[in-house]
């Protein structure tokens, strides 16, 4: 299986790039070709209202992206990320507002995507044995599958009205561990594209799919370089077509 990787991000206007709380993993050079029997990647969107959510989002995607084994339960991955988050916090006396925020916990969405050519080793018999993919999601970071130049599925959201200011989130605080991950599996063929995007762009794409106005060509022409992607997102923001928020996209293509 040959995959071509691209990933882009642009922080919210008015913020500094180091404040961008979207995270994805792995961090590969755009246009990299990967030849592998299986591949995992993940994207997360840290919540602005919580503290250390950039760190949390980064740890979540790293743990998820490294768990190539489909039998690893998502909860194990999240628990490992929780332990890393606690260990990474400053250990000196925190200012009182920071200490309260840390007690409340950090929050983030998560989309984990696995794709494989042969799945003989997987104990999960519900998954396709060959040429399959599966996605697990909490929150409003969405996956799109493009087959023969057409968007054929979106996950976990399928309608623009599902987006809100209160998406399901994964927290470092186990008291808030109520959000269950949804999952979707499918098959791929050569030439397919898989897109993963955080909420601002996902909402725009789903809204345009609903109105019949989203062509793959329109998206793909803006994925030729980081500069091109960022100009596109800035244009959409200026036109008030997407909200001003950290905006990220992964495009994984199963090469011809």
């Amino acid at each position: 299986m040959k995959l071509v990787w691209k990933a882009f991000s642009l922080c919210k206007q008015g913020n500094r790039e180091e404040e961008n709380e979207d995270a994805y993993y792995p961090q590969l050079v755009n246009g990299s070709s990967l030849i592998a029997d299986q591949f995992s990647c993940a994207m997360s969107d840290g919540a602005t209202s919580s503290s250390f959510s950039r760190l949390w989002a980064n740890l979540l995607v790293k743990e998820s992206g490294n768990s190539h084994n489909l039998s690893v339960d998502l909860n194990q991955t999240i628990n490992a990320a929780r332990a890393s988050w606690k260990a990474a916090l400053p250990d000196n006396d925190l200012p009182w507002p920071t200490a309260i925020k840390v007690r409340q916990g950090a929050f983030a969405t998560l989309m984990c995507f696995h794709i494989w050519q042969k799945n003989g080793a997987s104990p999960l018999h519900t998954l396709p044995p060959d040429h399959g993919w599966t996605a697990n999601a909490v929150g409003d970071t969405c996956l799109f599958q493009v087959v023969k130049g057409k968007f054929i599925s979106t996950f976990p959201f399928t309608q623009a009205k599902e987006f809100s200011n209160t998406p399901n989130l994964i927290s470092t605080n186990v008291a808030y561990a109520r959000s269950k991950a949804g999952s979707l599996s499918g098959k791929w063929q050569r030439g397919d594209h898989f897109l993963i995007a955080t909420d601002a762009l996902s909402e725009w794409m789903i809204r345009n799919l609903e109105s019949g106005g989203l062509a793959w060509a329109l998206v793909s022409e803006n994925l030729t370089s980081l500069v091109r992607f960022q100009s596109w997102i800035r244009y959409l923001r200026r036109q008030s077509l997407i909200k001003n928020d950290d905006t990220s996209l992964i495009c994984l293509t199963v090469d011809e």
């Binding site: 503290s51 950039r54 507002p97 920071t98």
Partner: peptide, 11 residues
């Protein structure tokens, strides 16, 4: 209000 404006180590 101070807590809600708190982000990482800054207000």
């Amino acid at each position: 209000l101070v807590v809600s404006a708190s982000k990482d180590m800054e207000i």
